[in-house]
Design a protein around this nucleic acid. Structure first.
Lengths: 339, 339
DNA sequence: GGCAAATCTGTTATGGATAACAATCGTAGC
DNA sequence: GCTACGATTGTTATCCATAACAGATTTGCC
């Protein structure tokens, strides 16, 4: 390893010397303190521009104890939700004057704990956790006790730490849509139950059926991937009584539809399929996918806002920030086939 | 804004005091210096564990001049390539002992320049630029002259700074596949030409047709989104002579296929469509999409490796790191319809 | 035994900025 | 004219870890 270093550029003291003032005055100019004479301010600013001086954020972070950085923990998968949430966080952070440090983890408790530790270690001012914590919740709580944290997946019991979309409502909307079309009952392909999103949807689907007096068929389980949708679709498609399927994510719904098509069951004539997420491709699938829209990008933004509020006031206490989803009716759902 | 701060936890001097040694010795233990007596090392380590001490990375970065952080610049869109490249970068960075700072920008020169500045300002050790630079290249070069940089979109003239997939080859493979099936010629829906990926593909498509002695139809232009694919598909689908389309991204290809279907043109019986990327959903579309696979995740990883090499040796000089793509033949391509 | 080299540990200076405090100057009010 | 306070600027201490240097001990070898 070479010891050569890239040039660090001028420091505050260089600017101070060139402008004939103290470093503190330069600092005041940079931080827009009121009590600096206009002439001084202009002189210092001129030198800053001339030397191309940029404040060293590392030094600043050290002395202020604030890095102006927030950490985001996501799962190491490339799905739509992860990606758009990360985008929302980044945009929100920029608006709030923060930069984003991203880490990923796998589903294991150890991995999640490690990832959170890495963020804390890195010196972030706050953390957004967009991964399921059911298993790891206690150990993570130990680490995050001293640092502002927001979750986008979790029970609403988390209070100020919870931001997201109302998953119960999403499942109700999807299930009811299918029942309203005249289906006798609705089958469900659930996501991994480590995700509270997935288990909320499962429970709400079940409750909605019960309240409507419908039979509750056994649910199937996938892992959010199109592959798992395909796999489960091959099973569902073999059962003639299945006419309506509520799939816990659009990406799995794509796989389900593909499997149904291969089995010769037409969507929506024979089987109706509804997804959740409204990914960009949902409107362009064949047939276009009826789904429940939830904006992950917006969730990311709101998570940042809430996090920043916590950073500025650690004692803040507010109810969970849940947003209502909306149904996007497209061509993948229709009334059941005539018997 | 509250002035309350979260606890910083113990510092090295606290550990030193508790262990009855100097701070420097604690530092040596942490950095695994060889010349520390075993008994001392164990004693210090015990205190570290007991106090839950964690080294302050900000202070470390300040004194070493290395933040062990790399920056990634992507465009503020939520498409597959952006997301999987970011994932690859994150995974590669973790393997190399770095954390990742993400920023996004829009296509404008100013926005790209700002984004790069933010990264430098933030004190990253190196930058991965996954956005088109044609316009901004000079101004960005000024900023990145003093900091290791790797591009994943750019001409191969960038040498050690370039990592990616061979886009020329990808376009050749896609176009030839359609010609080999017997199509008289191949139409092309290109990406935004600010992206060198897009313009490489366009040029190679054109050259391949010319070399095969085929007529070169006028190309159409999209913006990578499924919407733009749909829009252009409505145009292409109206022309009876169009039997083969090479689309510059899978997401646009989804839109094209949807439009063709709506116009009553069957894929692949009437029109063959081939995409590029091999996104997760490609195998599960209706029909499954023939495409040219390029692993963005792998590109992200390789970009990190190259970047770290540059960080450790700023004078390193190596050829561009280009990887060959591979054709994934699925059901969206077939021989042309009998005349 | 004696001197050099290697091993272990400590002290001091440093990185770049900001907070807290101190000093200077001008002016407002009586 | 004098006190007081505000405006402006500077000085010093601090954040926390590491590099460079130095001192103290031990080991090795002739």
């Amino acid at each position: 390893m070479s010891t050569q270093q890239y040039d660090r550029g001028p420091a505050m003291r260089d600017v101070a010397a060139a402008a004939g003032v103290s470093a503190q005055t330069v600092s005041r100019v940079l931080n827009e303190h009121p009590n600096v004479q206009d002439s001084t301010r202009r002189r210092v600013q001129a030198v800053i521009d001339e030397l191309g001086y940029r404040r060293n954020n590392t030094a600043r972070a050290l002395v202020t104890g604030r890095s102006k950085t927030i950490g985001v923990l996501t799962l190491a998968t490339n799905n739509y939700s992860r990606s758009s949430l990360a985008l929302g966080v980044e945009l929100g952070a920029r608006e709030a004057g923060y930069t984003v440090n991203s880490v990923t983890s796998s589903l294991s408790t150890q991995s999640v704990v490690d990832a959170v530790s890495r963020l804390v270690f890195q010196g972030v001012d706050g953390i957004i956790i967009a991964a399921p914590l059911q298993e790891a919740v206690e150990q993570v709580a130990k680490i995050t006790a001293r640092i502002p944290t927001v979750n986008t997946d979790g029970s609403s019991g988390m209070g100020a730490r919870m931001v997201g979309v109302d998953q119960d409502l999403a499942a109700v909307v999807a299930t009811k849509h299918l029942l309203d079309l005249g289906h006798k009952t609705v089958w469900h392909l659930a996501g991994p139950l480590e995700w509270s999103d997935a288990s909320s949807r499962l429970n709400s689907w079940r409750r909605t059926l019960q309240e409507a007096g419908c039979e509750v068929p056994p649910e199937l389980h996938g892992d959010w991937s199109p592959e798992s949708g395909y796999h489960n679709g091959l099973i569902l498609g073999r059962m003639p009584e299945v006419t309506a399927i509520f799939v816990a994510s659009d990406e799995m719904a794509f796989g389900v539809i593909r499997a149904l098509t291969e089995l010769g069951r037409r969507v929506p004539e024979d089987v109706s399929v509804v997804g959740i997420d409204d990914i960009d491709l949902a409107a362009y699938s064949n047939p276009p996918l009826t789904t429940v829209r939830q904006s992950f990008e917006d969730t990311g933004r709101r998570a940042v806002q809430r996090l920043v509020a916590q950073i500025n006031n650690p004692d803040i206490s507010t109810p969970p920030d849940l947003v209502a989803p909306s149904l996007m009716v497209r061509a993948s759902t229709a009334p059941p086939p005539a018997p």
